[in-house]
Design a binder for these strands. Structure first.
Lengths: 163, 163
DNA sequence: CTAAAACCTCAACATATATTCAGGTCAAGT
DNA sequence: ACTTGACCTGAATATATGTTGAGGTTTTAG
């Protein structure tokens, strides 16, 4: 079995099959395919058209899953990852640049949620909640976004890759 | 125009048309329809089959939008709203019960995000990020959710940091 | 009364993030 | 060589949260 062999070290040298990557990252094969289609990771193919990944992909997938936990959508993750060097392995500094962008993002979201929490009791309890009066209903307080559009992404990460 | 009239006070007495509700809540008519289909709000109909809402709906929609901002999905919001009395207007206590549930939720999520933030720099910067070693990759640390996807490897070797 | 604005339903589309399935190919152990 | 498990592609399905449009009805302002 490929998996068994690969966990202790792929025979093929330094490359990993999609199943190897799945086993080592805990990410489903279908998701790995998906990430590749989305341009988040890359592979080469064998003669028989099977994917082969180099080890760097394990790290990239690690980053992807962590970033998702912060609520960052895949297209932004792709963009961030695309800032990494192609010709050489990313340095510690490269990774730090990524993480600092995301930390700012996280901080902003933590602040928003904290403010929301602090006003929840007051505003729901007291009965203001009107669009014009209540701080909870005035999105300008939190975000520079409107109140009538589609907001798919606000929930960010309530539920992750389960099922 | 109906909107003009309704903002200053509907002629029909105490009931609101869907357009009135949209104008007062800042929520699109299509979303109001949607919420009604989902059982989050309710209306009666005129002879001509048009929706009429009583003013309580404004509050409910306020609650819905606020809860969404905390990351709560509609089905949970529906469930929470269904705990409100049908026969009488909700009391301050009723609302407080709702908000306290959600505050706990929010607190949990704030804590998760905070922990995530605090580890971002360290873990992304340092190169651990392995599924078995890194606190960022070990979901049990954060959530008691998600069982099926991620199986931890018992294959001792750590090989992700390289390249 | 008439025309415009608001409303109705139902279906399809849109987005993000994948999973599942069908039908077929590749690779490896015995 | 044969069988079996891993792999391939592409399409369909799934969930959550709505929006858009077509085709038709109701209400209201003048």
């Amino acid at each position: 079995m490929t998996a068994e062999k690969s966990v202790s070290g792929p025979a093929n040298g330094a490359v990993l099959s999609v199943g190897d990557v799945a086993a080592r990252t805990g990410v489903a094969v279908s998701a790995i395919h998906f990430y590749e289609r989305q341009g988040l990771i890359h592979s080469i193919r064998t003669q028989g058209n099977q994917r082969r990944f180099n080890r760097g992909v394990l790290r990239r997938i690690g980053i992807i899953k962590v970033a998702q936990r912060t609520g960052i959508p895949l297209n932004e993750i792709r963009e961030a990852l695309s800032s990494l060097p192609i010709d050489r392995p990313p340095s510690a500094r490269d990774w730090r640049n990524l993480s600092s962008r995301w930390r700012d993002d996280l901080n902003t979201r933590i602040e928003q949620l904290t403010r929301l929490r602090d006003q929840l009791g007051t505003c729901i309890g007291c009965g203001c909640l009107s669009l014009s009066d209540c701080p909870l209903r005035n999105p300008d307080d939190y975000l520079a976004r409107d109140g009538a559009g589609a907001r798919l992404l606000e929930s960010g990460g309530h539920d992750e890759g389960a099922t």
